[in-house]
Nucleic acid binder design. Sequence first.
DNA 1: TAATAATGTTAACCTAGATTAACTATTTTA
DNA 2: TAAAATAGTTAATCTAGGTTAACATTATTA
Lengths: 169, 169
Amino acid sequence: MTEKKILTPSLEHYLRTIHELEKEKGYARVTDVADKLKVAKPAVSNALKKLIANKLVDHKIYESIFLTKKGEEQAINVSGKFSILVNFLIEILGIDEEKAFLDACLIEHYISPTSLNRFLDLLRFFESKENSELLELFKKYQRDCESDDNCPTCSFHCEVSTNEEYRLT
Amino acid sequence: MTEKKILTPSLEHYLRTIHELEKEKGYARVTDVADKLKVAKPAVSNALKKLIANKLVDHKIYESIFLTKKGEEQAINVSGKFSILVNFLIEILGIDEEKAFLDACLIEHYISPTSLNRFLDLLRFFESKENSELLELFKKYQRDCESDDNCPTCSFHCEVSTNEEYRLT
DNA sequence: TAATAATGTTAACCTAGATTAACTATTTTA
DNA sequence: TAAAATAGTTAATCTAGGTTAACATTATTA
């Protein structure tokens, strides 16, 4: 039942992209995937071979790439991770959408299910009715922090904010 | 002032490892790095060439690898990311130490400084005197969730917890 | 001090994942 | 339906980051 085959981050990404395209426009062709991931078509062909070998997708050439049952399960798994991370980053941490997407796109492939599930817990905790004021409290904490020159959080910011660029691989 | 050169995740990892060894035992030799990262020595030699070319380290052969000023800055930056993540995972999310280290080791190379700084904010928020009861509240929320068969968080857990294995690069 | 052990590099090779150029096959359209 | 546009693959090449085997150099110790 449980699928133990480990995909590389890159292949996971292809899989999720195919899944997204299927949902968005009903089909996913090599060209669509290439455009969405901003890679050349041969890179997609290449990834496809591996996904097909792993029985995660089928490819009706000149029609569409289809996820198998197994492929869909894994895609949903990755999508789940992605959603949790994006939501957490946007809703709780207040990261802007574009950056949240970029971060989540990378982290989703590296975080353990355990940690991710705890993130989900925390997300739900913040969103729960009983704690409706919590998020506002956190934002207030951040604002107060910003206006405090001796705030230890803020001084540490300087140390970790040297380099805003990062890879997408 | 600000260092814009981007290191790959792998090279960042080497850099942080050298820094850690320097702190732990006063020096870092090729063999130490290889042991700590569980790679063969030629992999270290190879990484070293690139780090030296980037003026991030010096190597006195048969003595030690030394971080340059620039190298130390970057190492501290990466270490900072690592610490924030580890602390967040352990202290707030309650992940066990070993898994927290593994997750943080990967995520540190992919997360943006912006997101990371927000994590730090949230970590401090949880740790602040005004909110001393917050963490307990969260743990309670999780416990309650566990005992609720219809809890949406828990049912989602099943979806994302299929595959506990993950790569270390 | 000579033999041995430890340290480190080089060379050859492997895999993953990308690129461009050239090609084939299909679909569209005039 | 023939010509043109689109879709996709193959082949050759590149980079990053590993591996093992063989070798050179330095340090240790008997």
